[in-house]
């Protein structure tokens, strides 16, 4: 038998470790999804496969409320943060360093540097005061908080795209009689569109996933889907939570896949 040729890239055991890691990454998710199809009343028994808990979750008005609230919140925060992040990205790229530029970078990325729990209690302190002063306790606080921590995520792909675009195309447009606004409208914006969509999707996912900050900012009866689930976990859990989690998971996978394809498409 011929000896296997020497493989430059091989390292003993690495393949095994990697496959083990991938197995470990997906085993819990598989368990979660499997139990969501459990017919039994409790997680400790297995009574066969059914959609019972999906149907039950679907008709649960608390889940319905939380889902709608999560979506409204994620769409508003993603839209607002993407607009603010796009403007900020335009203001901080493709320029010679100017006074305040480094400050802007640091400030925009600040929400990434601080543990969520700290931001959460900080907002609790401030917003609880404002709630007392103004009497307003609507969704506005959550939208403001989510928009703030979504901005650095939306900013990321937009800034990266702008950094890879030099000013030549805008110069060419100006040379061909396009005013600065027209050059932005007909050249910069179309070229930036995939990055803006990617930024919006990132912000959407980040807002949808947030537990900690929402938990501290929300007023009574303002549960989002994640905080509703966190509340339920305190009690004896029923497979209904698994069903909700499975749907949530499916939604995340769809979003990530979509994001992946949006980002990969080179204009």
């Amino acid at each position: 038998m011929a000896k296997r040729p020497f493989d430059i890239q091989a390292q003993p055991g690495f393949g095994f470790m990697a496959l083990l890691t991938f197995f470990a990454l997906y085993l819990p998710i598989a368990a979660l999804v499997t139990y969501s199809f459990n017919t039994a009343d409790s997680l400790s028994r297995w009574d066969g496969v059914s959609l019972r808990w999906f149907i039950s979750a679907w008709h649960n008005s608390a889940v319905q409320d939380a889902s709608v609230r999560s979506l409204v919140l994620a769409v508003s925060a993603a839209a607002l943060s993407t607009i603010a992040a796009t403007m900020a990205a335009l203001a901080t790229t493709r320029t010679r360093p100017y006074p305040g530029l480094t400050f802007k970078y640091a400030f925009i990325n600040q929400p990434l540097m601080v543990p969520e729990i700290v931001t959460g209690v900080a907002l609790l302190i401030v917003f609880s005061r404002i709630k007392v002063w103004t009497g307003y306790s609507g969704l506005g606080y959550l939208i403001a908080a989510h928009t703030a921590f979504c901005i650095p995520f939306a900013y990321l792909p937009i800034r990266a795209r702008l950094d890879s675009m030099d000013l030549t195309l805008e110069r060419a447009a100006a040379d061909l009689y396009a005013t600065p606004w027209k050059a932005f409208r007909f050249v910069t914006l179309p070229l930036l569109r995939p990055a803006i969509i990617a930024g919006f999707m990132l912000a959407f996912v980040i807002s949808l996933d947030d537990v900690v900050i929402t938990e501290f900012v929300k007023s009574g009866g303002q549960d989002t889907l994640p905080t509703y689930m966190l509340g339920q976990l305190r009690r004896e859990t029923s497979p209904e939570i698994n069903a909700i989690a499975t749907v949530f998971l499916a939604l995340s996978v769809v979003l990530v896949t979509a994001f992946y394809f949006v980002n990969r498409r080179k204009p």
Partner: peptide, 10 residues
Amino acid sequence: WTNLLIRTFA
């Protein structure tokens, strides 16, 4: 990109 709470729960 999957919700942290869901993965903890998993």
